[in-house]
């Protein structure tokens, strides 16, 4: 436990230059730098990566992961954790590849019901106080089971419209950059600059406090889970368009990668402490590490371990930065 410094020793209203500087080092700073460094190394190894085509080739496979990280970010902002997001994305992929082509109305209805199911999960967790780990883990088997019922072995054909939408790539600015920018800006504006965004983050940080201030904590929880579901669907949409077919197991690895992305991106399991820019950067870090290791020819059997080591390194750095800031503050 730390002691509180007396008032007189605290700084006054006007921010000092150092404070302005340290304000720049928000939670999103470190992951963004990490993503840029990894990308820089890749460019140094293969200069072609920096070309529009190269950018598309390297970044496009990361878009579904970034959406999954954002989905996970909303749940972690609620102070929860979502172990079902991978199966959920897989089910979305299967629905888009199998049901949507044959019966568009039924397909869309199915996707809407999936979002509603996430909302119901939010209610269950908020009202009954069930641990989110248990609920989402249980639901992950439900999603996977339904997906396997619909499509026992990989197959199906994703509608042409979705494929061309996802692979849309204008000549000058690569499509992936456009998508990443729009998604990051819109989501960040909502979560960090809108009033309800503040309520949502607050509800994850101190639900009782937000409730006492006259807000519905249940509605906040449901909003966060619905947002998570929508981003899960977007992730499934991009996966479907990129692969062209359906596979229930396609996104299983996203569960842990998305959690890693949020945490690397400056988020914290405490709830309420997340950063959209950080999460996007965190998703890129997690994904790019994989590509980089392939580039430098690390054997695929070592890749997972190497990936993990780099993630641990980023987290150690972050702990170090936090520690330094804390020490400075208490000086």
């Amino acid at each position: 436990m730390t002691t509180t410094p007396p008032i007189t020793r605290e700084r006054s209203t006007a921010p000092t230059a150092r404070e302005r500087l340290s304000g720049l080092f928000g939670p999103w700073f470190l992951p963004s730098v990490a993503a840029l460094i990894i990308f820089g190394i890749m460019v140094a190894l293969r200069p072609l990566v920096a070309s529009p085509t190269g950018l598309n080739l390297v970044l496009a496979p990361l878009i579904p992961l970034v959406f999954a990280v954002l989905a996970q970010m909303f749940v972690i902002a609620a102070g929860d954790i979502d172990l079902g997001i991978g199966s959920f994305i897989g089910l979305a992929n299967v629905v888009i590849a199998v049901i949507l082509p044959s019966n568009p109305a039924a397909g869309i209805l199915f996707l809407v019901v999936m979002v509603a199911a996430y909302a119901a999960m939010g209610v269950l967790i908020a009202v009954r106080g069930l641990p989110s780990i248990v609920v989402t883990l249980g639901m992950s088997f439900v999603w996977l089971g339904i997906a396997i019922l619909i499509l026992p072995t990989p197959g199906g054909v994703v509608p042409e419209g979705i494929v061309s939408f996802v692979r849309f790539n204008p000549p000058v600015v690569p499509g992936v950059i456009i998508v990443l920018t729009i998604v990051t800006v819109v989501t960040a504006l909502f979560l960090h600059r809108s009033k309800y965004g503040a309520v949502l983050r607050g509800s994850g940080s101190n639900a009782e406090g937000v409730r006492r201030a006259g807000w519905s904590v249940i509605r906040a929880k449901v909003s966060l889970y619905v947002l998570a579901a929508i981003f899960g669907l977007l992730s499934g949409l991009y996966l479907s368009g990129q692969t062209g077919g359906g596979d229930p197991y396609i996104a299983q690895s996203y569960v842990l990668l998305s959690i890693a992305g949020v945490i690397v991106g400056g988020g914290s399991f405490k709830g309420g402490e997340v950063s959209v820019v950080g999460a996007v950067a965190g998703g890129l870090v997690v994904g790019l590490i994989g590509s980089l290791l392939q580039f430098i020819g690390v054997q695929s059997s070592f890749q997972a371990a190497a990936q993990g080591l780099v993630l641990v390194l980023v987290l150690v750095l972050r702990a170090l930065v936090n520690w330094i800031r804390k020490v400075r503050r208490t000086l």
């Binding site: 607050g202 006492r212 709830g271 402490e273």
Partner: peptide
């Protein structure tokens, strides 16, 4: 459920602010 709609406000002994929010965001919640 929401006594503040009756004009009743309460400050409890245990603080009920959200640690992760900025001061102005905190003000907006109230």
């Amino acid at each position: 459920a929401h006594p503040e709609h009756l004009g009743v406000r309460t400050v409890y002994q245990e603080l009920s602010l959200c640690a992760s929010l900025r001061v102005d965001e905190t003000a907006a919640i109230f």
